[in-house]
């Protein structure tokens, strides 16, 4: 099929700031379910979505990080995190729940430039 498009999901919001995290994940998985070429990028407070050991039960929220390992199940292997966003929050890959590719701003710019569709959350 020739109607495969490259789709980038950009996450810039903290995990319990509205529904962004859940909707972004839904969009990524649905894109993959329809055989699109999906990549996911986390930057700014979006990197907090990737932190290990989130336990939002007491604030009556669903743990959106549980779904992150599903990206791999859906063959979404391109998960990127912008380095400056990690550094600004004193985080490293060690703090993150799933394996990611850390990229600098030039690579992030290239990544954005390569896409047919970019969805921002």
């Amino acid at each position: 099929m020739s109607n495969t498009k490259s789709l980038l999901i950009v996450n810039r919001h903290a995990p319990y700031d509205g529904m962004y995290a859940k909707e972004a994940m839904d969009a990524a998985l649905i894109g993959a379910a329809f055989n699109q070429k999906v990549s996911v990028m986390f930057m700014d407070d979006g990197v907090y979505q990737l932190l290990r050991e989130q336990a939002p039960a007491d604030i009556r929220q669903k743990n959106t990080s549980l779904t992150l390992p599903m990206l791999d199940m859906y063959d979404i292997n391109n998960v990127y995190v912008e380095r400056a966003s990690l550094q600004a929050r004193n985080l490293t890959e060690e703090n993150l729940l799933i394996p990611v590719q850390v990229i600098d701003s030039v690579q992030a710019s290239e990544l954005l430039g390569q896409q047919d569709i970019i969805l921002n959350f």
């Binding site: 810039r12 930057m43 700014d44 912008e82 400056a84 966003s85 701003s105 030039v106 992030a108 710019s109 290239e110 954005l112 430039g113």
Partner: peptide
Amino acid sequence: MILHTVNKSPARSNCLKSCLRIAPHGGA
């Protein structure tokens, strides 16, 4: 080339700063 749009005041949000980390590498 990418056209980056920013719709938030720089005094209220980090949108512009984040955008400017990435945008100059091939965009307006």
